[in-house]
Design a binder for these strands. Sequence first.
DNA 1: GAAAACATGTAAGCTGTTACATGATTCG
DNA 2: CGAATCATGTAACAGCTTACATGTTTTC
Lengths: 303, 303
Amino acid sequence: MSIESAILGLLSWREATGYELKKIFENSSFMHWSGNNNQIYKALMRLREEGYVQSRTVHGGETPLKKIYSLTQAGAEALKNFTAAPPNAPECRKPFLVQLAWADLLDTDGLFALISAYEKELGLHLAMEQEKARRFGAPNRTPREALLWEMIFTNISGSLKSELAWVRSLRQKLFENKKEEEKRNMNYILQKNGTAPYLEVFSLPSPLQAEADALDIVALCGEHEAAHLLLHAEALSDAFFDLKTKTAGGVIQKFVNYRIKTAAVIPLGRQSNRFREWAGESNKGSQFGVFEDAGEAVRWLLK
Amino acid sequence: MSIESAILGLLSWREATGYELKKIFENSSFMHWSGNNNQIYKALMRLREEGYVQSRTVHGGETPLKKIYSLTQAGAEALKNFTAAPPNAPECRKPFLVQLAWADLLDTDGLFALISAYEKELGLHLAMEQEKARRFGAPNRTPREALLWEMIFTNISGSLKSELAWVRSLRQKLFENKKEEEKRNMNYILQKNGTAPYLEVFSLPSPLQAEADALDIVALCGEHEAAHLLLHAEALSDAFFDLKTKTAGGVIQKFVNYRIKTAAVIPLGRQSNRFREWAGESNKGSQFGVFEDAGEAVRWLLK
DNA sequence: GAAAACATGTAAGCTGTTACATGATTCG
DNA sequence: CGAATCATGTAACAGCTTACATGTTTTC
């Protein structure tokens, strides 16, 4: 199993340039070769030598611009052999387990912090993977192929969910009493009644102030598999409303990056003129909106 | 996160030679550096240069024989820093998913075979991991440390179990009708009433004949998390009873490797003199036994 | 007395990453 | 008109694996 097979597969789907392949690798998790020029271009050269792919050069005006690669007959056969080959079990690297192995060195608070940090990291990754899966236009030439790809994405998020479940059981075993304390400070609820679940955040232990706080919320969305978010004004800091600090922009950027559609409910009284203007501009996009009325916000969120 | 941290951890547990560390890495899954001389000896030299470990040389007679490494004060601090560092999410490589991505090329039987092969591979790995966990004498200096290590092993087998559940749901979605056909040919039952669950195998589609067949059974034990096995004579081939073919020895070896305690129920009539002798010798060990009577076999199996 | 395990190291090579180098096109 | 994106490559290096080289001790 090497990057060559993955390239053959992608080319069997659609012809592409090296750069396009790089982009695809970058945006996919299960084809784990992190978008890496060196490997891809070298692999393409090898594959061409072996007669598995062919390329035609597209000229832009005078100079050669790009090479579009496509599969040959031999390549198609090699790919088929690869798909039918005996499969290997997954190989997981979990550096966290190595840390945990010697974490008895830490005191109670240190261990609790370590475990919480891991849980947050997992939530963040889950949100990212779900975003990637939504963004990735999977092959869909037959119903069976569509099902296979759907199950691939299910697999990836499933692994993370099972890891999350594990870390929660670990926390429970270690800190049976302490476990809910933290969460209770965060006043939120997962709303499930509408067309899609959304996270409604009433207030936070400390109001949303920096991008790191935004990531906490993203992780929370990931953990609850919510792609929508309703923020109440009480959860926002004064810095958020002061556009000079650029807090609002940075925070919103995080939500947009993770494709979490967000509505903020903010009474007119707290909106300065400049903020109102900025909000009006934001509302034009479909990813973030500011509303006075909670009902209106929810309608926009779920439409 | 590098092999250095893992070595510091192990040395904080007990002092060891390079060779011993190698053995430990080989036998542990979550410390994923596959028992590799080069890396370990080089890392030990680096660690000594940096003052994190010290070594004393043991002489055997005249010549220096081995170097026993132990942690220094500085090393203990470095380890503590490592355990408290921000944890990273796991990184999983699942080449099977890449195969599956283009498996729409295969016909129904080919796809079914691919998925079954993956399920079997996972079962085998699960059996192996459970074996490793049992064999690994985990640190146990405090109750909390014991719990941490228990949860580490739970994590590893949990990942595989969640993968198994996924592949079964995949199979069901693709082959709702075909799914049970295969298994029905294998006449077995998971007994749960005794002190420990055991797998009772009455017969097989083709009788136990080669080591590969033994691995099928091991995988089945893994999938059902059974560490004990009761084999009826009907599941065994004539070759098994013919000691010249060495089938019996090879098959039993597989069970022993995976630490599956096995009892075979074989009527006296089918046992040749030589076989009886061989069986008597086997019974002395505690891993494999031959019995005439099923009740006796179960008692021995679960004692 | 031979084979397996214990013990320490080195050399060569593969895989994958980061960074570098260069230039065209597109978009705000 | 400057920045981002598209596009193709190369160089250097880190990490890890396989194989080699050597000698002792234990076990069957």
